[in-house]
Structures are given as structure tokens and as C-alpha cells.
Simulated assay, not measured.
Amino acid sequence: MGSTLSVNAQNKIEKEYRIKPSQVPKEALDFIKKCPFKKKIKWYIEESQNGKSIEAKTFYQKRKYSIEFTSEGEPEDIEIKIPFSELSIDLKKTIQSSLDSIFAKSKIKKTQVQWVSDRATLISLINKKNVKAAYATNYELIVKGKKEKHSHYYELLYSNDGVLLKMLRVVNDNTDNLLY
């Protein structure tokens, strides 16, 4: 329980820009065709310290969905924006305790549930089908945190048990993209 990760965050440098569906790999387009999305899909290239990826963003059942793909079109993860209040009481307490130990003051700006698995399992999860295969459920938070008299935005990734897996300090003003 809690966090064992060093509180010295690496930097997250990210640039995102729109692309046309014609610029998207066939594998990513095929993945999206198997999803129940009715609204328009907006496609993006995301450049970060980890390289380039492709992202599909849409609304589905009153939630913002973001599906990240490798540059070859293989799915990496699915993120769904949710209110922090929807997390279980125990998970909220564990995460808040972790934030209190890292920051003098913090405010959660965005919470997303993140699914990580193979292509078929991710498609089943989106389609709300019975999933027998293994998949990871994580929670990504964008937090405005104050440390040593300075406030910055941070991206924190927690496991389903509330263990801090990753912490990145957001560099430059890309918070508009992160808060989408």
C-alpha cells in the first residue's frame, strides 16, 4: 500500500497535433471499426520523450475516450476520463495519502482509468463483453502539485491497488492536451 517510487519526477515533454484518417495506419483504423463509437474520431500524432504514437479521441457514453497506438497501429492502451469520486473509497484514500506524501499541496485536475492489454481484449473491454484474458487497470491523474514553494503539473500513474507506478513533471504548456 502506498508509494515506493522516488518523488523526483522525470519530465514529460509532449507535443500533439491533428492528422487526417488517411495518415493513420490501417491496423489502428481496423481497431476503431470494431468499437461501438458513434461520434467522429479525431486522430492525433503525439510526440513525447518516448517517441511517436498515434491517438484516437472520441466521446462514447458521455465519456472522453483516448486510444493510443504505436506508430505501426498496434494498440498500447485505452484511457477513459472519469471523475476521481468514482474510484473506490479505499483507492481514493490510498492515492490521496500518496499525494500528501509527495506534495505540500495538491489538486487533482483529471482522472482517467487506463486499460492495458492485447488488441482483442481491449476491443472486448470497449464493447463491454465478458473478458477472460488478463488486462491491467491503472489510473492516470493530472495533478497540480506544490513542492518547495513551486507549483507544477504532474502526470501520475497508479495501479489498481494504489501503488504509484510512474510520475512525470509536465514540461511546457501542454496541459491543454493533457486535460482533454
Rank of each mutant, 00 (worst) to 15 (best):
Gly2Cys: 01
Ser3Pro: 00
Leu5Gly: 03
Leu5Asp: 01
Asn8Ile: 10
Ala9Pro: 11
Asn11Trp: 01
Arg18Gly: 01
Ser22Trp: 06
Ser22Ile: 14
Ser22Tyr: 06
Val24Gly: 05
Val24Tyr: 05
Leu29His: 11
Asp30Met: 14
Phe31Asp: 08
Ile32Trp: 02
Lys33Tyr: 07
Pro36Arg: 15
Pro36Val: 12
Phe37Met: 09
Lys38Val: 13
Lys40Val: 09
Lys40Glu: 13
Trp43Lys: 12
Trp43Ile: 10
Tyr44Asn: 09
Ile45Gln: 09
Ser48Asp: 14
Gly51Val: 09
Ser53His: 04
Ser53Phe: 00
Thr58Leu: 09
Thr58Trp: 07
Gln61Gly: 02
Lys62Met: 13
Lys62Asp: 15
Arg63Cys: 11
Lys64Trp: 03
Tyr65His: 14
Ile67Met: 07
Ile67Arg: 05
Phe69Ser: 08
Thr70Lys: 11
Ser71Glu: 15
Ser71Gln: 15
Glu72Leu: 11
Gly73Thr: 10
Pro75Arg: 07
Pro75Thr: 08
Pro75His: 05
Asp77Phe: 02
Ile78Pro: 00
Ile78Lys: 05
Glu79Gly: 07
Ser88Glu: 15
Ile89Met: 08
Asp90Arg: 11
Lys92Asn: 10
Lys93Phe: 12
Lys93Ala: 14
Thr94Asp: 13
Ile95Tyr: 02
Ser97Phe: 04
Asp100Phe: 04
Ser101Asn: 11
Ile102Asp: 04
Ile102Tyr: 04
Ala104Ile: 14
Lys107Gly: 03
Lys107Met: 04
Ile108Asp: 04
Lys110Ala: 09
Thr111His: 01
Thr111Arg: 01
Gln114Asp: 08
Trp115Phe: 14
Ala120Ser: 11
Lys128Pro: 00
Ala134Asp: 13
Ala134Phe: 12
Tyr135Gly: 02
Asn138Arg: 10
Leu141Lys: 00
Leu141Val: 04
Lys144Val: 10
Lys149Trp: 01
His150Met: 12
His152Asp: 13
His152Gly: 02
Tyr153Ile: 06
Tyr153Phe: 11
Tyr154Ser: 06
Glu155Gly: 08
Leu156Gly: 03
Ser159Lys: 08
Gly162Arg: 01
Gly162Gln: 03
Val163Lys: 06
Leu164Tyr: 00
Lys166Cys: 00
Met167Glu: 02
Leu168Gln: 11
Arg169Lys: 15
Val171Ala: 09
Val171Pro: 01
Asn172Glu: 05
Thr175Glu: 06
Asp176Glu: 13
Asp176Thr: 14
Tyr180Trp: 06
